[in-house]
């Protein structure tokens, strides 16, 4: 293991900070209800379905079925798009 190199000297902070170029971004939500679509779920989670079976998330963001017609429940498989609009979540 090599020694950590010494940090270069920090340049002096300008007296007036420059105006941020972009608006401040809000913290993103952990759970998102997508209109007419699934529920997005961020992070590791275990979901218990209606039959008591448990499913662990396998990716950083998961889409949980809300139309109840997915062939891969509890995960969304896009089936909501085949439903008439009034039957979508």
């Amino acid at each position: 293991m090599t020694a950590r190199p010494v940090d270069p000297p920090t340049p002096a902070t300008p007296a007036t900070p420059s105006t941020p170029a972009q608006p401040v971004v809000e913290e993103r939500p952990t759970i998102v209800m997508c209109p007419e679509g699934p529920m997005l779920l961020r992070g590791d989670a275990v979901i218990e379905d209606a039959d008591g079976n448990r499913h662990r998330t396998t990716r950083p963001v998961s889409a949980v079925c809300r139309c109840n017609k997915s062939a891969t429940k509890p995960w969304c498989d896009g089936t909501h798009k085949l439903l008439p609009k009034k039957l979508r979540p």
Partner: peptide
């Protein structure tokens, strides 16, 4: 891709394209 893209389509539309066009 069945499950991944069910997530990705929501991210691509709602978190990427929409906020970009807002800005």
């Amino acid at each position: 891709h069945v499950e991944a893209d069910a997530v990705h389509e929501q991210l691509a539309v709602r978190d990427i394209c929409v906020p970009l066009v807002e800005l």
